[in-house]
Write a protein that binds this DNA or RNA. Structure first.
Lengths: 217, 217
DNA sequence: GTCTATATGTGGATAGAC
DNA sequence: GTCTATCCACATATAGAC
């Protein structure tokens, strides 16, 4: 693995662990056992590192979060989506811990982010419409866009929400399952007679996973 | 108004406008036309200021967000709540823009925050149960707590969500109405036959208000 | 209560040798 | 590509005069 990639990897780890604000370029370098000068040979500055991390994140999201084709197996696919999605959010959660700060210091990144989120909103809306077409949920067009927004908010800010409720501020693997349960509850609110048993089945599955190490949220 | 109160007021304004990270104690003092030394006469340090602001915020929330007594007029009261609540979130939104950072630097504040949020969650859950008792929504106990969490997430992170979607990063009065619409959509998902018309009425009201100055979200 | 002046520490970033 | 040394800017915080 190249030094450049190692810097990215180390930065993600340290940012997630201690927060982007608390981690300086010196911390990153010293943790890797390289000099600050070397770090600045590979990256123009700290924002440059963050931009690369964001590129990584959005690229992962693009490849994993492709719109569904078959509506009838919607919820089966949904599980896979949610697992991958929350796992991704967990791996890059520092970004949403400090979203405002990070974006306000980098105009270029902010533009990319806005564009990216607009595309994402459309995709989520399509997914919601897809579930409707498959008879899984009942929802009018107006609420479909509202639901898409709420899904985005819930997924994006789930990790900061959890961290703020815990003195240690640490995230656990189980938190992912609790997040998925929130999304399932959202879908269940719009579910049809036909789909409710499927959702309840999923809920039981993730409830069991979430309960393995934690008291109920 | 005392210098101490003016420092609080100025800090809130500058934090909201530029973010807590970007505003130093020198900025606050210089914007007020006082010396840094004077500021440090009134407050021990920057965190001391933030603690006072949080105390102000939680105090406002406690006095305004009292549980409902009469279930039958639930939605009428709900409107007043939501107006006051989102207005409050708007006035202190810098806090949620940087929640993780702010809490991670101040153990005492974090403890207060956690305690406060736990109490708030109970209150929101009571409100949800109250709406159910009044026949306004249909929801089982398990989903009631999930809904309470989602309401909290939506209200807490609504302003950072909106700011991240806008290049200027500025918030407008209309954003409040769009936030209220999200909460209404959440309630509508669980609404009974009886209450749907009431919610639709409220939705029309806030849609009109939100449309006054902005294109649709 | 308020000021001026300043100490202290530190983060971001660069120059130049190897 | 990597290191050492260092500069610059600035935020936090204090001392002591008024």
């Amino acid at each position: 693995m190249s030094t450049k990639d190692k810097i990215i990897k180390t930065s993600i780890m340290l940012f997630n662990q201690h927060g982007e604000r608390a981690i300086t370029t010196n911390h990153i370098a010293s943790h890797m056992g390289i000099s600050p000068g070397n770090l600045y040979y590979h990256f123009k500055n700290k924002e440059d590192i963050i931009r690369h991390i964001f590129a990584l994140y959005s690229q992962h999201l693009h490849t994993q979060f492709v719109p569904m084709a078959k509506h009838d197996e919607a919820f089966t696919h949904l599980t896979g989506y949610l697992d991958a999605l929350f796992e991704l959010m967990w791996r890059f959660h520092f970004f949403y811990d400090n979203l405002g700060d990070i974006l306000s210091r980098d105009e270029v990144l902010k533009k990319d982010y806005i564009e990216f989120q607009a595309a994402l909103l459309s995709q989520v809306r399509e997914l919601v419409i897809g579930l409707r077409e498959g008879g899984m949920i009942t929802i009018d067009d107006e609420d479909a866009i509202e639901l898409a927004h709420m899904l985005k908010i819930t997924v994006s800010f789930w990790t900061p929400y959890i961290k703020a409720r815990r003195l240690s501020g640490e995230l656990m693997q189980q938190d992912i399952y609790n997040g998925i349960l929130k999304v399932l509850a959202l879908f269940k609110a719009f579910a049809t007679e036909q789909s409710i048993p499927q959702i309840n089945l999923l809920r039981e599955k993730y409830s069991a996973l979430a309960a393995q190490a934690e008291p109920a949220s």
